[in-house]
Design a protein around this nucleic acid. Structure first.
Length: 430
RNA sequence: UCAGGUGUAGCUCAAUCGGCAGAGCGGGUGGCUGUUAACCACUAGGUUGUAGGUUCGAGUCCUACCACCUGAGCCA
């Protein structure tokens, strides 16, 4: 008799099969028991009658607690009264482990309690759905780049120096020395792009920002492509294509999960190329019209991003920010030297920036003077500067924040549910 | 770091003007052959975040601290 998973149960109608999983819920009715079984692929109702299985098995099944693990053998039958349309008529049941009193009940809980029990909360259906969508988005990103012959190049986690500001670095001991947890794989991807042409990395990044908002984690995952002989325009097309590939894939493969999350699918179905492109000037004009607190010349704040994204039904790309608010490696616009050849992609519905990128400075002397202007220790960048000495070419790339993307796609209120074990300013447990 | 908010049973929350510490869920016991977060009856469960203070009397008022939540700045 086959041991099967719940998501393939329809194929076994009328047959006797064994399922392995956990007791999600139990309803006892005197002479029959309903067990909702969860196995990671889905839920199914199992029905056990006292007359069929005998008193001993019936009594031990009555004693089952929530999340006890079991092997159940029975006959698969179609039944309209059961959720999912199928149920298992139990013939035997083996208790693998009788669970202790489970802290998470089907009723409501506060966020702090749930986060304290994150290792168990993952079993709940909404968390399950979010992480399935996360997996699909990761898979879509990999396929997108792999299908265009990008090479995956892994960036290091320990780094000797900052890619951007030094105040937001996690410092750690490295034998007799100091090392920092990476904030971005970008500088390494620039090196890799000069070797492989089209590359990307996908890994965790760390920011010691003391941010306490629904958009911030101290540990989050980024996908960072970098392309040699690519300018800002090409970079934007690459970003646009990636977002469309993600949305398309999730709508195709994870529609059930999105429905369970009560996501308004029409908001995703209208995501198509081309995305509107706004120059920083255009963005500033919109913000002026909307009475924002925005100060011309500054970076966009979170409320500013919301105002701009509210005008469109798809992601917006804002380009050519003032160079002063951007990182040292950004190439300047030759026609407007106070502007950077950069792009931020703002997700719709006020979900904010999910992509930041642009064309990199490829001239050695210009890059050197930027490093000095930003008062960065030039000796840490010797290897990076080498890239401008040995066949420097125009190149561009960007970073996609995975968790912010998952937040948007799932329509969540907070980023903390989009990663299995979130790390925030106030949480490093479990 | 700053601003606002919350802290009462295992969980989610009540407690009127400062006057007996309560409910639902979850747990336990019993009942029920079609439940969908079942239902019915009974039952156990409390240092009201911590430390001080005011008062005849504090969950409630005051002070400090702690934890968490929501934002801002910064960023993906």
């Amino acid at each position: 008799m086959p041991t099967v998973y719940i998501d393939e149960i329809a194929k076994f109608q009328g047959q006797e099969v064994t399922l392995q999983g956990w007791v999600y819920n139990k309803t006892a009715k005197g002479k029959l028991i309903f067990l909702m079984l969860r196995d990671g692929t889905g839920l199914i109702q199992a029905v056990m009658f006292r007359d069929t299985v005998g008193d001993a098995l019936f009594e031990s099944t009555l004693a089952l607690t929530q999340e006890s693990s079991v092997r159940i053998t029975g006959t698969v039958s179609e039944d309209k009264r059961a959720k999912g349309g199928f149920e298992l008529q139990v013939s035997t049941l083996e208790v693998v482990h009788l669970a202790a009193e489970y802290p998470i009940s089907p009723k409501e809980h506060g966020i702090d309690f749930l986060m304290e029990h994150r290792h168990l909360w993952l079993r709940s259906s909404l968390q399950h759905a979010v992480l399935k969508v996360r997996h699909e988005i990761i898979s879509a990103c990999r396929d997108y780049f792999d299908n265009m012959n990008f090479t995956l190049i892994d960036a290091p986690i320990f780094t000797p120096a900052a890619a951007e500001g030094t105040s937001t670095l996690f410092e750690t001991n490295y034998f007799e020395d100091k090392a920092y947890l990476t904030q971005s794989g970008q500088l390494y991807m620039e090196a890799a792009a000069m070797a492989f042409g089209k590359v990307y990395c996908f890994g965790p990044t760390f920011r010691a920002e003391k941010s306490k908002t629904r958009r911030h984690l101290t540990e989050f995952w980024m996908i960072e492509p970098e392309v040699a002989f690519c300018d800002l325009e090409g970079d934007m097309e690459l970003a646009e294509g990636l977002i469309c590939a993600i949305v398309e894939r999730v709508l195709d493969k994870r529609r059930e999960e999105l429905k369970r999350l009560e996501r308004d699918l029409s908001k995703l179905e209208c995501i198509r190329k081309p995305f509107p492109r706004l120059d920083y000037e255009d963005a500033a004009q919109i913000l002026k019209e909307e009475n924002s607190q925005f100060v011309y010349g500054d970076d966009l704040g979170a409320p500013d991003e919301t105002i701009i994204s509210a005008r469109y039904d798809r992601p917006v790309m804002v380009t050519h920010y003032p160079a002063g608010v951007k990182a040292f490696y950004m190439k300047r616009d030759p026609e407007r030297p106070d502007r950077a050849l950069c792009v931020d992609l703002l997700a719709p519905e006020g979900y904010g920036e999910i992509i930041g990128g642009g064309q990199r400075e490829d001239d050695l002397d210009t890059l050197l003077s930027r490093i000095h202007e930003h008062q960065l220790p030039v000796e840490n960048y010797d290897w990076y500067l080498d890239l401008r000495k040995f066949g420097s070419v125009p190149h561009a790339g960007f970073g996609l924040g995975l968790e912010r993307t998952v937040t948007w796609i799932c329509g969540l209120q907070h980023i903390r549910e989009t990663i299995p074990f979130p790390r925030t300013i106030s949480r490093i447990y479990p």
